[in-house]
Design a protein around this nucleic acid. Structure first.
Lengths: 224, 224
DNA sequence: ATTACTATTCTACGAGTAT
DNA sequence: TATACTCGTAGAATAGTAA
């Protein structure tokens, strides 16, 4: 989301558009926001198109209210800042939908060089294959993005003389009481809306999961 | 402040740059932020120039920490969102430095049409002249900007056949226990860093203020 | 008065690349 | 590798103005 729109939404919230509809004029808002009347007008239109505010222009101004979708965006900002000014949590939660991959996980977990590192660093011999989870919610994808950035348990890549094997990063995790690990592979064909799970057992079998099942994962991120 | 910079600062905070220096690479941050490596680089440089982060580039990345000034910006954001998701306060506080104006206030308060409205709507006959306050802090100027936007006690303008007299907006206030009012004149030559105060007595004399004295003002904004 | 369209200016993004 | 420079250009911001 564009910065100017987020700031506009925030400023509308500050002047009360979250609780009640407010009457504003772009000619007044321009002073508050330090831009031209035309830019304010454009941003309000864009916010409306995104469904973040509702708007009705009425002659000498317009009545604006932040929608629930807009409130979500601000709440997320608020919650994250709360974490920052409080303490960074030592575990993150997200939900994902089980789906079948292309066997890539099974391939990697069977390679001795990787397997050795998993046993040493994660404390378990991984069941061949990974549990693939599709992230649906905005905040679930945020968790993945945060994991991509913070330091985890490094799995180093190597070169066997024929091809190179990329590195990865793990975080210890738990699904329904089962110890496991989130693995973020450096070079993957999956997008940001997918997370892979390593475990000492088949989570699919143990928890009787099928494609489409929803699971909650607790990831331990220590005191980063 | 530019939206992209605020968002960058926020995202750095989310990944922990507020509490500790963090090691980051623009090549990794670009994925997290959804922009090019070049933009991330530019924004980090701009944030450093503004004194919001401190930075040391070291070969394969850079160590970044949000400065106290940067933390202030985020704290302000956090506090305001807290107000939004909690309840809007019924009074705002700001601090200002007393300075001498050009007698404009004395002129206006002496005009019967205005004076009548002050007596009716504010409940006191104003001492001729206004107390001019220069706002120094970022949040003090924010208060002024919020006051400009929300509804207050309207003072309507008029035309006496020769010239037109502009409107204004008042908020009941208190300085050191003295009942007074903040007045925001529609057409003023003062900028956003100045606020004028009306009171039934000379606040300068009563509180023995001189140019350069700092005062704290409580403004009552009701339940807007 | 407003809002918001169109035309124009110009900023800021990202590709390419030096270091 | 990484950061961060130059530069062409897309798209954002504003001026002018219609409604």
């Amino acid at each position: 989301m564009k910065g100017s729109l987020l700031i506009t939404l925030y400023q509308l919230a500050v002047i009360g558009a979250l609780r009640n509809p407010i009457f504003v004029k772009t000619t007044k808002l321009k002073d508050f926001m330090g831009v031209s009347q035309q830019s304010v007008s454009r941003w309000l239109i864009e916010l409306e198109k995104l469904g973040l505010i509702s708007r009705s222009v009425c002659g000498k101004g317009q009545i604006i209210r932040i929608t629930e979708k807009g409130a979500e965006v601000l709440r997320e900002l608020y919650v994250n800042l709360g974490r920052v000014f409080g303490s960074f949590p030592d575990k993150l939660k997200f939900r994902g939908i089980v789906f079948s991959g292309l066997g890539e996980g099974r391939f990697y977990t069977s390679i001795p060089h990787y397997r050795k590192q998993f046993i040493e660093k994660l404390g378990f011999d991984p069941y061949p294959g990974t549990l693939n989870l599709k992230l649906k919610g905005f905040s679930d994808i945020e968790v993945k993005k945060v994991l991509k950035l913070i330091a985890g348990i490094p799995i180093v890549g190597f070169y066997d003389g024929v091809r190179s094997y990329g590195g990865a990063k793990c975080f210890k995790a738990k699904i329904d009481g089962i110890d496991c690990a989130v693995i973020l592979v450096e070079r993957t064909h999956y997008g940001d809306d997918v997370i892979e799970i390593l475990a000492p057992v088949s989570i699919r079998d143990t928890l009787k999961l099928v494609d489409g099942s929803e699971v909650e994962v607790e990831v331990y991120v220590g005191n980063n």
